[in-house]
Design a protein around this nucleic acid. Structure first.
Lengths: 194, 194, 194, 194
DNA sequence: GCCTAACCGAGACGGTACGTCTCGTCTTTAC
DNA sequence: GTAAAGACGAGACGTACCGTCTCGGTTAGGC
């Protein structure tokens, strides 16, 4: 059983960096442990010693990258505008293969590895979801949003369409689409809503 | 170049059946062409002759299975109720590994293979989307839904949250969740919506 | 179970040749299946499919090489001279690393793998021993050699000293040593032997 | 560079004992430095600090074991009987895996490591050879053995057949074989010897 | 109703990557 | 201050599949 106090930090960083870089360039299929080890200048065993799977490495790599950006959503007082800002930024990020590649690779892993998905939910999805809900709750408190809205459901309505369209390429991913999602999610579509 | 008139229909069926069955049992990772060929009692070359990739086999297998169920969405005159019926059915189907396994496997493939994703969009996603939009347009014509609603966006709002939650296991997939998604998507959440 | 009728003869030869060559250059320790496969331009599985171990490959390689040289020992009517000729030839062969390297490697394997040793005994040692005994028996029939000599023991006396000295480098391996072995083995050393 | 005055005698003994024991149980292939260190309760570095190779450890271990038994060959005045006594004892010892295992392991090493073989020759083979030659010289002095016999060659004739048969398992290793070797080596086989 | 070309099951082939094991070196921890 | 413990870079192990390539043996039209 490995003793984490003896862990070589230099190797750990090299592995995570190599994993991110290769995931961006090669995609998930062609991302191999061998290639990560070679690129990182590390023995394969050093990867297997500390991570149970290729997905876990990717997960840690992405976790390390996003550690810093836990800023919370913007709050200008205009919920729709703030959400559009965030979603448009997401659309822009997803257009960059170096950024989106590793995320796509990890997503593929999550879909196949329930245990990793559980980790993901706890350490990445839940915190990000809380940030989103915090912004929505602020809008609720400001009377901008209905008091009876289920913020979890609303967050899904706002963020899953863009994620899904990106993941499965079911349509063009444009800023206009992001705006439309926000508008439709917030304004409702039944005629008796007015 | 293979001559499709000489194609052995028995082998084709055996391959598609084996692919579906193994995808349900093993998941995508362990679904191999070798295993499909062995299970189907078929030479590997017979698979490679007719399909370009593992994903393409799965795609055809699922296509064959869903060919029959192109019925259109129910229309009782109550849009919300009809949508809940459909989404609740989806939730139920996704709970059955034999059904959901192959779809999960295919989804994983789609996320990695843009060419296959294009095929998917044209031959499965678009037709299904048209059925959804047809039902929504009927509601629009009936004055139940706003005339200025973008039906594509609305369809995404209604169907991607459930699909995403199922794919990435980001939360419990229950009938209540399905209902809540429909309610929130249709009724809007801004307070000045009333 | 592999079907030997489908075996690729070109690959088989390439593997045996590569094994012999590498065994001569690298010695047994550094002789790896990976290197043999690479040198032979062959997949590793092609080796594992047909041979159970590294030693078995070497064995077949040496077997193929010595297949042709089953000529029998020379018989000029002078036993001692003939034996000296043979042993001096052995000494010369053992001095060539390209020849002796693979034999050394195989010998190391034989010492550790009783099953391979059994194969060796049946397919290489025994036939060679019979050739030796045939020559000795001819000498016996000619009245040159005692009728009560145990030819197996005598063969060991004649051939193991050179083999052992070569294998363990316990002394210089010279033609003179070969001659001395033959003389001492044949003439006896007790004074009442005259 | 290790300072031998600081050497931990307890560790040294534990390593040698562990090496002997494991060589007897596992054979040479599976005898690893890791296993020796673990069995001896010692860090690997402690082995690498003091010995250059696995073979050197084994060598020292066997050296320590045989240090005591430097008694010389028996001398009852009957050379053949004394030699048979010794060779029969050797046959008996070789039948005990706990005894023969380590020797086989070392022999395998010697065949592959000329430097170790040189050490072996000087520190084990030569002394033992001198003991044998001393007994033979005594027989020579007693007029029992020819004055012109080359004692080195004769010693090889007497001792290598048994060693070779044991090492390569080319035949059954029995007391009778030992006797026959002695008889044939001493009495000569040419008919004009009488 | 035969001929012959394609498809078929089978599986060997050259490869790549897997996850494990051991090597010999280097580093940390605890006594 | 010395060693145990063990992490490290390296690389071979034997296995699993990849996608391609022969093999004979059926099939199923075209003549």
């Amino acid at each position: 059983m490995p003793d984490s106090t003896r862990r070589n930090e230099r190797s750990r960083r090299a592995i995570l960096d190599a994993a991110l870089e290769l995931a961006g360039v090669l995609g998930y299929q062609k991302l191999t442990i061998e290639a990560v080890a070679a690129r990182a200048g590390v023995g394969k065993q050093t990867i297997y010693r500390w991570w149970p799977s290729k997905g876990a490495v990717l997960f840690d790599a992405l976790l390390a990258r996003t550690q810093d950006t836990e800023d919370g959503l913007p709050d200008t007082g205009d919920l729709a505008a703030d959400l559009k800002t965030v979603l448009r930024a997401t659309v822009t990020e997803f257009a960059d293969p170096a950024f989106a590649g590793p995320i796509r690779a990890l997503t593929v892993e999550l879909a196949q590895d329930p245990e990793l998905a559980e980790q993901y939910q706890q350490r990445l999805d839940r915190p990000m979801r809380e940030l989103k809900k915090a912004r929505l709750r602020a809008a609720q408190d400001a009377g901008e949003l209905r008091a009876d809205a289920d913020l979890d459901v609303l967050a899904d309505l706002l963020f899953t369409p863009v994620a899904q369209r990106w993941l499965l390429r079911t349509g063009p991913l444009t800023p206009e689409y992001a705006d439309a999602v926000v508008d439709h999610a917030l304004h409702g579509q039944l005629t008796d809503n007015r």
